[in-house]
C-alpha cells in the first residue's frame, strides 16, 4: 500500500478536537491517554500474582513459578536462561521465537506460559543429541541456510514443523510453508535447500 505523506492533507491534529483544545494547554499526552492506562495507574496496581506450573523443556521437567503475563519466550530466555530462542518482534510478526509446543510449531512470544501447564516444549537447544547435530541443523550449515544466525533457531524449529506437517514436498511448497519466518539477511534460498535436504533424509 502506498502512503506518501507529502501528498496528504495539510497536517491537522492527530487527536480529536476536544483533545487538541486541551493539548494547547500543554497536556497532549495526558489528554490522549485513554482510560485503560489511566485507571490502571490511578487504581492500586494489582500485585503480581505468580502461578506455579510444570513444563517439560527439551525433555526435562521443570517446575516454575511465573508471572501469568510471561510468554513462553520470556520464560525460556529470562527465567530458564535458554537464550537460543530469539525475540525479533514480540508481536507474532517475524517467527524468530518459533518453538514446538506439544509437537507443533508456534510463536512463543504470543503464548502465555501460564496457559501451558504440562506442555512439552522443544527449543533449538534440545536438538543436538550426544554431540550429534540433528540432520536439519547440519543441513542449515551445509546449504548456507543462515547468515547472521539470529532468525536461525526459529527457522530450524519452523522447518521441523514444516517437515512434520508434510509440507516439505517441493521447494515451492517449502517456500509457502516457511513464510512465517522472516530472514532479513535473505538466507531464504539456503533455508529452502536445507529443509528440502533434511526432509529427504528423515
Amino acid at each position: 500500500m502506498t502512503e506518501n505523506p507529502s501528498e496528504s492533507h495539510p497536517p491537522g491534529p492527530i487527536m480529536s478536537r476536544r483533545e487538541t483544545l486541551q493539548a494547547t494547554a500543554g497536556a497532549v499526552a495526558l489528554a490522549a491517554l485513554p482510560p485503560l492506562s489511566a485507571t490502571a495507574t490511578s487504581a492500586p496496581a494489582l500485585d503480581t500474582n505468580t502461578v506455579t506450573l510444570t513444563m517439560t523443556v527439551n525433555g526435562r521437567a521443570q517446575t516454575l513459578s511465573v508471572d501469568p503475563r510471561q510468554s513462553i519466550l520470556d520464560v525460556l530466555r529470562e527465567t530458564l536462561n535458554l537464550t537460543g530462542t530469539k525475540k525479533g518482534c514480540n508481536q507474532g510478526a517475524c517467527g524468530a521465537c518459533t518453538v514446538l509446543v506439544d509437537g507443533r510449531r508456534i510463536v512463543s512470544c504470543l503464548t502465555l506460559a501460564s496457559m501451558h501447564d504440562g506442555a512439552q516444549i522443544e527449543t533449538i537447544e534440545g536438538l543436538e543429541k550426544d554431540g550429534v547435530l540433528h540432520p536439519l541443523q547440519e543441513a542449515f550449515v551445509e546449504h548456507e541456510g543462515l547468515q547472521c544466525g539470529f532468525c536461525t533457531p526459529g527457522q530450524i524449529m519452523s522447518g521441523l514443523g514444516c517437515i512434520a506437517e508434510g509440507h516439505a514436498g517441493s521447494p515451492e511448497e517449502i517456500q509457502f510453508w516457511m513464510s512465517g519466518n522472516i530472514c532479513r539477511c535473505g538466507a531464504y534460498p539456503g533455508i529452502v535447500a536445507a529443509v528440502a535436504d533434511a526432509a529427504g533424509r528423515t
Binding site: M1, T2, E3, P5, I14, R18, E19, A32, L36, S37
Partner: peptide, 24 residues
Amino acid sequence: MLDAGCNKRTPGSGCAAIEGLNAG
C-alpha cells in the same frame, strides 16, 4: 497507539486515521 485518538479503543477520543495515513 495509545497516544493517538481512536474511537474504537477509547470512545470519544477521535479517529486519527481519517485524516491520517489510511491506505489500509
